[in-house]
Structure formats: structure tokens, C-alpha cells
Simulated scan of single mutants.
Amino acid sequence: MNIQLPFIVVLAIVAWLIVRHLRLRWWVVAAFVLLGFYLADTSAAPLIDNTTRDGVSVVNKTNK
């Protein structure tokens, strides 16, 4: 049986579990989200994107 969930639902569940079990405050999570948006607008964004894609391909054992 395959279950298809939107990626945002999976992220929301992971975020909730992190906040719940690591006892992070919601303002810390909001600060991390804002930091992510700010990083996406810098010159480091292509490096982060390429590193993330390479990491996913290693985990999935796929080659370009």
C-alpha cells in the first residue's frame, strides 16, 4: 500500500515533533524559517541548493 502525502504535511509533522520533543519555542522555529528565507536571497543559495541536491542523490543512490 502506498500513501501519498504532500511534502508540506511531512514538514509540518517533523516540525511539530521537533518542537514537541526538543522543547523548542515556536519563536525559535519562526527565527529559523526567517533565516532560511534570508539565506535563499543571498549568494550562498546556489551552493545550498547544489549541496542539498547532491545529498539527496547520494541518499537515493541516483546519479546525474
Rank of each mutant, 00 (worst) to 15 (best):
A31P: 00
W27T: 10
V29P: 00
P6W: 00
I8H: 12
A12I: 02
H21C: 03
V9Y: 04
L35F: 12
L24P: 00
L35G: 09
I8G: 03
I18M: 04
W26C: 03
I13K: 13
L11D: 04
R25K: 12
Y38S: 09
L34W: 02
V28C: 03
H21P: 00
R20N: 09
V29T: 04
L17Q: 13
V33S: 12
I18F: 01
P6K: 10
I18C: 01
R25S: 10
I8P: 03
W26T: 09
I8S: 13
F7S: 12
H21Y: 13
W27C: 06
I18Q: 02
Q4G: 06
V9K: 09
V19E: 01
I8Y: 10
W26L: 11
V9G: 01
V33I: 15
L22Y: 07
R20A: 05
L5H: 08
F7G: 10
F7C: 05
R23C: 05
V33K: 07
G36V: 08
V19F: 02
W27D: 10
L17V: 08
V10T: 08
F32H: 05
V10F: 07
L5W: 13
W26I: 07
I18L: 09
L22S: 05
I8W: 04
L39I: 09
Q4M: 10
L22R: 15
I13S: 07
G36K: 02
A31M: 13
L34M: 14
V10C: 07
V9I: 06
L24A: 04
R20S: 07
W27F: 08
R23N: 12
L22N: 05
L24M: 13
F7L: 14
L11N: 13
L11H: 08
V33G: 11
V28N: 01
R20D: 07
